[in-house]
Simulated scan of single mutants.
Amino acid sequence: MSDGFKFLHTMIRVKDLDKSIAFYCDHLGMQLIRRKDYPSGKFTLAFVGYGNEEDNTVVELTHNWDREDDYEKGEGFGHLAIGVPDIYQTCEALEKEGLEIPRPPGPMKHGGSVIAFIKDPDGYMIELIEKK
């Protein structure tokens, strides 16, 4: 059944689109792939990622123009995960840039990967996993 299926993107709602694009592109090295306004629906979609949408899974940032309040995160959503070559150096650089790191880099409690968690401008958790 899954023959020909492909994971395309993950969508998150963001309050300040420009701030979110800057976070994902400037701090995490993604590229703005495309951005389109939908005036009749009063929203904008922006897609960011590490390569084109044909070959890579990307993040869709949805900005509803009239939104003033922060979004509720709910208890079902967990986090996005990004592999980095040197987690300690990455976190040190991100901390100098003023990013919040609620879980500093280090080994997982029960063994395995070396991880850290940072927050994006809307409070979404981003897990950094060291991939050497």
Rank of each mutant, 00 (worst) to 15 (best):
S113A: 15
K119C: 14
R35D: 09
K19Q: 13
V114C: 05
G98W: 04
I115F: 00
V14R: 06
K109Q: 05
D86F: 04
M30R: 11
A22C: 07
D122L: 11
F77P: 00
F43E: 05
E92L: 10
H27N: 12
L80S: 00
Q31T: 14
L61C: 04
G29W: 08
T62W: 06
V114A: 01
D66Q: 12
K96H: 15
L61T: 02
G29M: 02
P102R: 12
E68H: 14
G98Y: 09
E68Y: 02
H63T: 07
G29D: 04
F23K: 12
A46R: 03
A46G: 06
I129Y: 07
L94S: 09
P102T: 14
I118E: 02
G106A: 04
H110E: 02
G112N: 02
K15I: 05
I118V: 11
G49T: 06
K96V: 10
N64Q: 05
Y50D: 05
D66H: 08
I87D: 10
P102I: 14
L128I: 01
A22V: 04
M108G: 00
A81T: 06
K119R: 15
E92G: 11
E75D: 11
D66N: 14
F23D: 04
P39N: 14
E68S: 15
Y71R: 02
E100R: 13
T62E: 12
V14E: 10
D86Q: 03
L45C: 15
L45T: 14
G51D: 03
I21Q: 07
P102V: 15
Q89G: 13
D122M: 11
R35F: 03
L99F: 12
E53A: 08
V58H: 09
G112K: 01
A81S: 10
S40Y: 08
G83P: 01
D16G: 13
D66I: 04
C91F: 09
P85S: 09
D18T: 10
G74P: 02
D16K: 15
A81V: 02
G112E: 01
I87W: 10
Q31F: 06
L80V: 00
A22W: 03
I129P: 02
D86C: 06
K42V: 07
P107D: 08
M30N: 09
T90R: 13
D86W: 07
I115T: 12
R103T: 14
V59L: 13
G76E: 10
T62P: 12
D16L: 11
E92R: 14
I118S: 09
C25D: 06
S40V: 01
D16M: 12
E100T: 15
H27K: 10
H27Q: 14
E54V: 11
S113V: 03
V14N: 04
V14Y: 07
V84P: 02
